[in-house]
Simulated scan of single mutants.
Amino acid sequence: MMLEAVELTKHYSGHIVLDHLNLQVKSGEVFCLMGQNGAGKTTTLNLFLGFIAASSGQARVDGKLVALGQQVPDIAYIPEVVMLYPYLSSLENLDFFSRLAGFRYPKDKLCDYLRQVGLQPEAFEKRVGQQSKGMRQKIGIAIAMAKNAKVILMDEPTSGLDPQAMYEFNENVRAMREAGKAILMATHDIYSAVHSGTRIGIMKQGTLVNTLRADEISANELEKIYLTIMRS
């Protein structure tokens, strides 16, 4: 199992933000976590990344226990706003972050990664600060691919994307799924959850209250289930 939460719990000064979460994501799966702000989605990602310590329970990546501040191998993180160097080009950012992860590629291989995620060739040498959010998200995915990450965590990656950019992003997620990546994505985007996910978990007040198969439900049905849970 590539990602596993076992009774994973986090509280601050007695306030529970994540309550005994049990979750598994295997290779070739996209698990979409949905819920209102404060439901525990980002806390879950932060625990898997080792950014914060669990109050109890375990977070495991590829069978290895994650500890606070520990560098987690084989994992890539794509946040809502991908943090890149604005004065470097797409190629320069990809090269820099690949080297940081211990990988050195010739220019033609770096270009291949950017092509695979759908970035247009004219953007390869363009400064990232001059590019749209959708284009920066593609660079973030290219970095994850170049790092050869087995596990990819995403936090609201489609927020603020226009319909075309959202479609292209979901195509990239499906491609990563088919390549055997294990993906955990926190999202408010019902369309993306249904069309690029394999399973969908709905969280409320720190608890995973429902899990659904994406191929057995439509976006309209998911919306109704989600709203019913939020209103209960």
Rank of each mutant, 00 (worst) to 15 (best):
V25Y: 01
N93E: 13
V209Y: 02
G180Q: 05
L33Q: 00
V6S: 12
A54P: 08
K150P: 02
K109I: 11
G102M: 05
H188W: 03
M34E: 06
G201W: 13
N22L: 05
G14V: 03
V173W: 09
E223D: 06
F48W: 05
S55G: 12
A165I: 09
M203S: 06
I217A: 05
E122H: 12
D62K: 14
M166A: 15
Q137W: 02
P157Q: 03
T198D: 11
S132H: 07
L23P: 07
R60F: 05
V30G: 08
G35W: 02
E7V: 06
S89P: 09
A67M: 09
I141L: 13
Q116H: 14
G129Y: 12
P73C: 02
G69N: 07
T187F: 02
V17N: 08
I139L: 14
M34L: 15
T198Q: 08
R199K: 15
L227C: 01
G140E: 12
G206D: 07
T198Y: 06
L119I: 14
D155C: 10
V30A: 04
K41A: 15
N148A: 12
A59F: 01
A39L: 02
N172Y: 14
F97A: 10
G57L: 06
V209W: 02
S232M: 12
Y87D: 11
V17I: 03
R60Q: 09
R115L: 10
E178I: 07
Y167P: 01
Y167R: 13
A76S: 15
L8Y: 05
M176R: 04
A59M: 08
A123V: 04
I217R: 03
P106T: 09
V17W: 05
G50V: 03
I78C: 06
V6I: 15
V6F: 14
S89A: 04
T228E: 14
D112W: 15
K107C: 05
V25E: 06
I16Q: 02
K133V: 06
K147T: 09
S55C: 05
Q70A: 13
F103C: 03
C32H: 08
G180N: 12
K107N: 13
N170A: 10
E92Y: 13
L18V: 04
L47M: 14
N172S: 11
V117F: 13
L227K: 10
A219S: 15
T198R: 04
V61Y: 00
D74P: 02
M145V: 07
V82T: 11
R99F: 01
Y105R: 04
G69D: 11
E80T: 04
V30H: 02
A59C: 11
I229W: 04
A175D: 12
P163S: 09
N93D: 03
T158W: 01
